[in-house]
């Protein structure tokens, strides 16, 4: 079921070059800079992130407001339909207004972008952190700990996670609120981030574990062990620096997947609460009207696709730069 909502997760582990220390980043950046598509996408991405961060300012400059009702933009005699074609697009409301309330679509889109990026970014950071730590522990300790973690990962991966997220949203959001997180969207967003991370980490942990298993056998690790270095030192000084490449690749590809997942969850009613909005909520709302006003579906849908595609392209470019041999997968 999970695979139905995002592209199937990565299954083969990345194989980073056995490049020594510092120079890898300079080499990779050099390669990345020569990847024209990657550079363009990175530019688009930075632009989108800036737009998201400065959404309130942009809205203010454009004179649009995501929350303000505008009864003059809708026809109360016609069941609240926006006045004019394209969902009531006008100078005042460049992308039209919402059916029934007259709220500005452009402003809501920008605020939606903010929430989608916030959830996806934090969830990716958390997923990456959990996955890396558990992956290292699992790979380094081997033996019983490794096999327990392995079974745990199998278990989590076997769960129909979309179903679980949907089913538990109400109860767990309430728990989160009772733990002191403010009621409403703060709790809901926390829930989204946590649950995405809980079901997301095993993919990365597997990759990291595989890396650590092979790194362990390498001379520099063995010599560190022989010289009597403590386990934390070995893990974080010797092994971790060699893992950054696959972790970065994984993170850049997870982020777009989470953007998509967040949209699906909001679409199914588990995401953020109105009056806030997100891509999924806007699309869910469009379902009732898109036969009459297709732009309700296509505007947020297109922006969502652009966002995910550029992230994926940047992810591919990062991978190519860090590991040209792996090919595109």
């Amino acid at each position: 079921m999970a695979a139905d909502l995002v592209a199937p997760p990565e299954r083969s582990s990345a194989k980073p070059d056995e490049v020594q220390g510092r120079s890898i980043w300079q080499i990779a950046w050099g390669r990345f800079r020569r990847d024209r598509a990657g550079m363009i996408c990175l530019g688009v991405l930075i632009l989108l992130v800036l737009i998201a961060i400065f959404a309130p300012l942009i809205c203010h400059l454009l004179g649009v407001d995501p929350y303000a009702l505008d009864p003059t933009a809708i026809d109360t005699e016609e069941a609240g339909k926006p006045i004019g074609p394209w969902g009531g697009a006008s100078l005042q409301h460049p992308l039209g207004v919402e059916w029934g309330t007259g709220r500005d679509i452009l402003a809501r889109l920008l605020y939606g972008l903010r929430i989608s990026l916030l959830v996806a970014t934090v969830a990716t950071l958390l997923t990456t952190a959990i996955g890396t730590v558990i992956g290292i522990i699992s790979g380094y300790s081997r033996g019983a700990v490794d096999s327990i973690i392995g079974r745990l990962m199998d278990l989590i991966l076997a769960f129909p996670f979309l179903l679980i997220i949907l089913a538990l949203s109400g109860a767990l959001t309430e728990r989160i609120t009772s733990l002191g997180v403010p009621e409403g969207n703060a709790s809901r967003i926390t829930y989204l981030i946590l649950i995405l991370s809980v079901f997301g980490w095993p993919y990365l942990a597997r990759i990291v574990r595989g890396q650590v298993l092979s790194l362990r056998e390498r001379e520099f690790v063995e010599s560190a062990i022989a010289s009597g270095a403590g386990t934390p030192r070995i893990l974080f000084r010797e092994i971790l620096p060699n893992l950054w490449a696959p972790i970065l690749v994984y993170a850049t590809l997870t982020l777009p997947a989470y953007i998509g997942t967040e949209a699906v969850l909001s679409f199914l009613g588990v995401g953020v609460l109105p009056p806030e909005t997100s891509f999924g909520l806007m699309l869910a709302d469009s379902v009732k009207y898109f036969t009459i006003i297709p732009s309700y579906l296509f505007i947020p849908g297109t922006v969502l696709v652009i966002l995910v595609v550029t992230f994926n392209l940047v992810g591919d470019a990062v991978r190519d730069a860090l590991d040209p041999k792996a090919g595109r997968l």
Binding site: L69, P71, I74, D75, T76, E77, E78, A79, G80, G100, T101
Partner: peptide, 13 residues
Amino acid sequence: REALRTIAGGKYA
């Protein structure tokens, strides 16, 4: 009440 009714479908609501 008018805005509420408009959201529900205006005079049809």
